[in-house]
Design a protein around this nucleic acid. Sequence first.
DNA 1: GTTCGTGCAAACGGTTTGCAACAAT
DNA 2: ATTGTTGCAAACCGTTTGCACGAAC
Lengths: 141, 141
Amino acid sequence: MNSRQNLTPDDVVECLRRHDIRPSAQRVAVASFVLQVDEHPSAERVLSGVQADFPMISRATVYNTLHLFVEQGLLREVKLGSSSIVYDANTDRHHHLIDDETGQIHDIPWQAVEVDQVTEIEGFEVREYQVVFKGRRKHNR
Amino acid sequence: MNSRQNLTPDDVVECLRRHDIRPSAQRVAVASFVLQVDEHPSAERVLSGVQADFPMISRATVYNTLHLFVEQGLLREVKLGSSSIVYDANTDRHHHLIDDETGQIHDIPWQAVEVDQVTEIEGFEVREYQVVFKGRRKHNR
DNA sequence: GTTCGTGCAAACGGTTTGCAACAAT
DNA sequence: ATTGTTGCAAACCGTTTGCACGAAC
């Protein structure tokens, strides 16, 4: 459920600026990939994806850059089922569904579900929450 | 929120048998620890915990044993915020809260919250779900 | 005498770190 | 000149694997 809008390099640069991130060539490359890929990529996935058309980017830079993006609110880390951290360009509130077969993580709109009484968790102060679903794609029709 | 009942070795042996697990010395040691510890331990945590009074147990055996326990429904794996897989002796439906400060995972009773419209997730067949809360302990009183 | 359980040590995979080189201002 | 950014390689940590020894039926 990722935007998939075709972003021009200029769009990406502006987006970085909006998040107080200086637009180096590497950062633009990482951002372009992460903002347009139609999945929730892990750092290693980002590395190989970006290396496809930007071969001289290093692993360390990708990790640095992703951390920076998270810090600046451009991305969110998602740590669920999978063995690796994945990144989510959708920074609005939403839920997640983990595909039983593929392990892929899908965004579920916030209004798809209604959760009640959240403020009332005994003994805890809840800062945020989400529903994590497990299941699978409904076949063809 | 773990039971903390004092289990005798015999209780543990019986519990293993109920789950079709042959009670070796190592398995009893792992089960005793995991069923009584008041937290959600990682495999490494189980290893060091069990080694405390059972020094000659190997890493591989702990990992094997935990996997076996999960397979047999004695434990559940919990893969959330933390970098490692943790194990949950509470096999009933429940939610989880991740402590912002400590990273600790707490069980939240199923009825603490009400979730609606879960069957209606567009395009997916939901097999199970839980709410994942993030927050912190309410200070003393 | 197979099968099952255990131990050891090495491999693995994703992430982090330290450090040196190189911009950028 | 200081600060920020990159690249490389090694370290790290939790987990997995292969294999050989030993116990159990």
